[in-house]
Design a binder for these strands. Structure first.
Lengths: 101, 101
DNA sequence: GGTTTATGTAACTATTCGGTTGCAAAATTA
DNA sequence: TAATTTTGCAACCGAATAGTTACATAAACC
């Protein structure tokens, strides 16, 4: 079962969860309240997010608080920004490509 | 069928294809030569990449040259960097969270 | 102790994914 | 014109996804 950050953020619901948790940590039910889908569905998303380290959980009595560890997004940022010099410019294959090589 | 950039880059083979095409545009067979998997499998990956605008194809006789349009990666970069201020710092939920709120 | 609350988890379903093989079609080359 | 090359596409397959409902468990409250 592939479980990396890229796959974790591929799902729009999971990106929303990350957005929600950016401001304040929430319990699982607290997260679920913000969505239409069922609580177990959210639970599964959270599980995927914790499996790749994007979300950290702290048990507090019967509640489980979720928070985002944004350091894990670095991997994504690094992958994306390696191509930064290609944006808006025509240094890349697309440049000569569009100009008819 | 969801077909956005996040989902497109979720697959490691597709990220490799993007890396390959960053330097020079290649034909479909040219791309396929770099992988173990079959040509139709690569063809499907390319289709997904074109459907979300990450790859552009130019027909040239019987050959189809593929190039990456990196501008589409901006969407990803923007999503990621909105959380940039949270990295290495303890401004976020995780900070107070780990310190026992 | 009994009820409520927060969560986990199992079982199931439909759809999508990532791959395969086989065949068709169109352009190029001999 | 015939053979080769490049690609598209259909049909199929097994596994993963994203969701559901139903039930179990453990902590908290009365």
């Amino acid at each position: 079962m592939r479980r990396d950050v890229f796959q974790a953020i591929a799902d729009p619901t999971r990106r929303e969860i990350i957005g929600l948790l950016a401001n304040k940590s929430l319990t699982l039910n607290g997260v679920a309240e913000n969505f239409e889908i069922s609580r177990p569905a959210i639970s599964k998303h959270i599980k995927i997010l914790t499996e790749c380290g994007l979300v950290i959980i702290k048990q507090q009595g019967r509640e489980r608080f979720c928070a985002v560890d944004f350091n894990r997004l670095k991997e994504v940022a690094e992958w994306v920004t390696q191509y930064h010099r290609f944006w808006n410019e025509k240094l890349d294959a697309l440049g000569s490509f569009l100009e008819g090589e």
